[in-house]
Design a protein around this nucleic acid. Structure first.
Lengths: 222, 222
DNA sequence: TTATATATATCAAACAAATGATTTATGGAA
DNA sequence: TTCCATAAATCATTTGTTTGATATATATAA
């Protein structure tokens, strides 16, 4: 039997998953409620019944991805925070910690197979803000951005509240995220059709190199 | 009077400009032909008459921005190419050249007031590829990406055809473009509502610093 | 255990509003 | 007139939503 969670009927999750995939791929306006229901294998009226309407389904999808992704991000974040205390001001250890973070982020954003449709959905709302931009922003990426900012501040020994630290963190995050955001662009440029493990590894190594240089840390070649 | 160019009637340009603004802001599916005509101050049938339909208008808008933006990008590109010969392998001069390029790009992407609606339109097609992705890609950003790749190859003294060079160029471009792409995100993070000249200057300085470090070039502080 | 009542969920059909496209008519310039 | 451009009205579809009926599951009482 289906789990007796608070979301009730069995059509809700399929509808939310369809919404994440189709809204993420084609955008809110381009997806009809009929297409959503067809993809979810439900009746047309199920959106009205379970959510109230198309927009409320979109909202439900936003909160769904936030709840699904938050713990996964927090694993990366807490791993870093734990390491940060041990590392202290040792540049060699700082470099190792940052290399690991870059690797985790790239593998997560480029290689996640189990949640393939989440990222386009999230990115669309973040880059082209809609009604629930703030809910999404507060839900996940804000913590990640603040994390990177603390790294920058730690390594450069400046205040993490400075605009300078935030701007540098934004730029560094851009160095990493551009491989996810501008994926079609990169594929066209390199005549790639997909990310393979070897390609992700190559991107990881090069990005690690550039990030460490930008932070003026020695690469330890481990 | 209106210029007697090859595009005939006076309703075409207003329609194209409306298409760039509205498609860029809301996406293709979200904008109705009626809204477009209202924005352009034309009759509903003008889209059919001048372009054939909604999609052909979109196509016309793609080629319009390509033709408008290409010369502006080429100014930046040729300025760099000219400087490149004079600079040679002198690291100090290389640093100056690259700082200028970063500044030009950031001021163009963050501060362009005369073509305010072009960039969202272009970015939408590039990040969420549609039917005319290739036309746009070949029209402008490909040259820019190849330009950055040549810079990386020159400074690092490696082959510009290597995947490594291209990947590093992509990452460096991400460092810069993220301020345009993830503008809403940055604004939220810094509680900004707009880009002011001072803010653009701050971003420019910090980005120059990080890019030069990533390329292992000394900052000359001019 | 039965029978009844209630809440939950799904279904096919239909509605009003909108959308892109089309047709026909009109105005002005060469 | 002839050609170009615009305007108003209309068409067939698609859109999100709603309706009323029905099926399923759970709970309560006899």
């Amino acid at each position: 039997m289906a789990s007796t969670n608070s979301t009730g009927g069995s059509a809700e999750i399929p509808l939310i998953l369809a919404a994440i995939e189709l809204f993420g791929r084609d955008g809110y306006a381009a997806v009809s409620t009929r297409t959503l229901c067809e993809q979810a294998g439900t009746n047309i009226s199920s959106i009205k019944y379970h959510f109230g309407g198309k927009e409320e389904l979109y909202r439900a999808a936003i909160f769904y991805v936030v709840n699904q992704l938050r713990p996964r991000i927090e694993v990366v974040a807490s791993a870093f925070e734990q390491g940060r205390e041990m590392v202290g001001t040792n540049p060699v250890m700082q470099a190792k910690l940052i290399k690991q973070l870059v690797k985790n982020l790239l593998h997560f954003f480029l290689g996640s197979k189990d949640i393939p449709y989440f990222m386009p959905f999230v990115m669309r709302e973040l880059l082209v803000p809609g009604k629930y931009f703030s809910d999404l922003y507060e839900g996940i990426p804000r913590h990640l951005h603040e994390l990177i900012t603390r790294i920058v501040a730690m390594v450069q020994d400046v205040d993490a509240e400075d605009e300078t630290s935030i701007i540098r963190a934004h730029s560094l995050l851009g160095q990493i995220m551009i491989f996810h955001i501008a994926r079609p662009f990169l594929f066209k440029r390199l005549d790639w059709q997909e990310f393979t493990p070897a390609r992700i590894e190559l991107i990881t190594q090069e990005t690690q190199l550039l990030v460490l240089r930008a932070l003026q840390l020695e690469d330890t070649d481990d």
